[in-house]
């Protein structure tokens, strides 16, 4: 029982990274229709930026959780204005290729500047160590990661469903023509939404910094699993991305525990099953497949 609980928390912690990043990916896809292949690279940039800020300015994790997403938002805005926007009217494949190319460029730039063996990152004392919850010993940082990302996901959900901005974004996602007819300037929201999605990937990167190797390649494998997450949750579905993120984390953890050789394959088996049974994903709308 003890072990099972431990595996579950580890799965939820791993799932937190997937959920946050997939949330950004889903929002970008929803509003821009862009399959952002550079999401893994943005996640990597978040972690690298946090490590550099710690090294040069001694900026601790707490501040990085605030500062890095802001920087990444700015970076996302620049990328959207300079590159992505020009291809929005064309076949989605063009932006897919663009973001894929962008990934290669960003990864190589980080390699050139910071080498390949990775950057150090030290966890703040308050978050290191273990907590004892009724006999189950859990790493404090894993719990923090889980709770923090749940809070962010809830926050995003509230903004999306309870505020004017959120309603405009959702209207732009679901019925852009109608939204325009009602006098909403849909185009105005494209840039900030892209920036916001990038910021979420960066935030996942900051959370990963104390726990994962910070290297230029850290986003590569991550991005592949991320796409599985988004497909499982349903392309463009915000709730789906989050639920699927945690689900994939759990599948990974229990796979590692009970069938180590198949741990990673299980995620893709799950994806294949979902595609067979519900092609639009767990929370996807039927139109999403059209």
């Amino acid at each position: 029982m003890n072990a099972v609980l431990q595996y579950a928390v580890q799965g939820l912690a791993a799932g937190s990274f997937y959920a946050l990043a997939a949330l950004g990916l889903a929002i970008i896809f929803g509003v821009l229709g862009v399959v952002n292949f550079a999401h893994g690279a943005f996640y990597m940039l978040g972690a690298v930026t946090a490590a550099v800020l710690l090294d040069t300015l001694a900026l601790p994790l707490w501040w990085s959780l605030l500062v890095v997403p802001v920087l990444m938002f700015g970076f996302g805005v620049v990328v959207e204005r300079l590159l992505v926007q020009w291809l929005l009217r064309l076949d989605p494949l063009y932006n897919f290729l663009l973001t894929f190319g962008l990934t290669l460029v960003l990864v190589e730039l980080v390699k050139q500047r910071y080498g390949v063996s990775g950057l150090p990152y030290k966890l703040p004392g308050a978050l290191s160590g273990r907590v004892d919850l009724a006999g189950v010993v859990l790493p404090r940082y894993q719990l923090f990661v889980f709770l923090f990302s749940v809070a962010i996901c809830v926050l995003v959900w509230v903004v999306m469903t309870r505020t004017r901005v959120g309603m405009i974004v959702r209207a732009s996602t679901e019925k852009p023509e109608l939204a325009r007819a009602l006098g909403i300037n849909v185009g105005r929201w494209v840039t900030p939404v892209f920036g916001f999605g990038v910021a979420l990937a960066g935030l996942a990167g900051v959370l990963a910094a104390p726990f994962r190797a910070i290297t230029a390649d850290m986003g590569n494998n991550f991005a592949i699993i991320l796409f599985a997450v988004v497909v499982i949750g349903g392309l463009g579905s915000i709730v789906g991305a989050v639920v699927a993120g945690f689900l994939v984390g759990l599948v990974e953890a229990f796979g590692q525990a009970y069938a180590p050789t198949f741990a990673q394959i299980l995620i893709f088996v799950l994806m294949a099953l979902i595609i067979l049974v519900r092609p639009a994903g767990l929370f996807g709308r039927k139109e999403a497949t059209a």
Partner: peptide
């Protein structure tokens, strides 16, 4: 002995299992 995927970034559960 526990085989793990390569490359991989999440070893938390592998380690817990090894420690059990």
């Amino acid at each position: 002995t526990i085989p793990t995927p390569f490359p991989n970034d999440n070893f938390a559960t592998f380690l817990t299992k090894a420690g059990s």
